Simulated assay, not measured.
Amino acid sequence: MTSNWRHLPPAARAIAVASAEAVEAARARDEAAYADAVERLGGLDPEQTGRVLGAVVRTLLEQRHPDGLDGDDIRAALEHAVRSAGQWRDVDPQVMVVLLVGALGIHETDEDAPVPPRALAAHAPLLIEDLLGNRGFAELLTRAFAEIERAEIND
């Protein structure tokens, strides 16, 4: 898995490796491996990690709904992800909401209590795993990094 990301700078590589391991552990329902990967993911820069995982979630939502999303689509995605993540302890539907709306560019207001980065790191791979279905994660992660790079170049 690490060899796929050697071309990335160290910070991006760490996000890629921890994310891929967390998604694979979620897919395998391996709680010990998931906890380990989430611990590493949660210890990385939350802004960078959020941009990468948010780009993956956004891409998955766009692929599922090429004609656009509405509130019912988001609610259905949320309900399915929460049900799918049911085996995992401490799954918080509100954190899943923050991940979904954040990936779509809708951000919480100043009045909302921010979600701790470790909670986001613990929930994002579960949401991604649910949205992935049987598709591979590596290709989407590569697309996310390319999208972020393009945005930085154009800024």
Rank of each mutant, 00 (worst) to 15 (best):
E47H: 15
L126N: 02
A11D: 15
H65N: 03
E62M: 09
R89V: 09
G105H: 08
D45E: 12
E147R: 13
V98P: 00
I15A: 05
G136W: 00
E129D: 08
E147L: 14
M96Y: 09
M1W: 13
N134Q: 14
G43C: 11
E147K: 14
W5H: 05
A122G: 06
L60T: 01
L99F: 08
P116C: 10
A55N: 07
E62H: 11
Q94F: 12
F145W: 08
G102Y: 12
A113F: 10
I74P: 02
E129G: 01
A11N: 15
D130S: 14
R83Y: 08
R6W: 11
A33W: 06
R40Q: 15
A16C: 11
E129Q: 06
T49D: 02
E79I: 14
V56T: 03
V101L: 14
L131G: 01
V97P: 00
L141H: 00
P66W: 06
V101D: 05
P125N: 04
H80F: 13
V56K: 00
F145E: 00
R89M: 10
V17H: 05
R6G: 10
V38D: 04
L127Y: 06
R89W: 09
G71L: 13
L41W: 00
L131T: 02
R135N: 05
W88T: 01
V101E: 09
D72R: 13
L78D: 02
G136A: 09
N154D: 15
L61F: 14
G54D: 02
A35R: 10
M1D: 10
G50Q: 08
L132V: 04
D67Q: 14
M1L: 12
I148Y: 06
W5C: 07
E139A: 13
W5T: 05
N154G: 13
A146E: 15
N4M: 13
V97K: 01
D36P: 00
V23P: 03
A144Y: 03
Q48R: 15
D92V: 09
I148P: 02
A32H: 13
A119N: 09
A81D: 00
L41F: 04
R143Y: 15
A122K: 01
A138D: 14
A85W: 01
R27H: 09
G42A: 04
R58W: 11
A11S: 15
G133L: 00
A81P: 06
R143A: 15
A77K: 02
A76R: 09
A32P: 03
V82P: 00
E24G: 07
G105F: 10
E24W: 15
L132N: 01
L132S: 01
L61D: 03
A20P: 01
W5K: 07
W5N: 05
T142R: 13
E111G: 04
F137P: 02
R13L: 04
G50V: 05
H107G: 06
H7T: 12
V57T: 10
N154Y: 15
E31A: 12
P66E: 03
D72P: 07
D30M: 00
E147G: 13
M96F: 15
A16L: 11
L127C: 04
G54F: 03
D112Y: 12
I15K: 03
V95P: 01
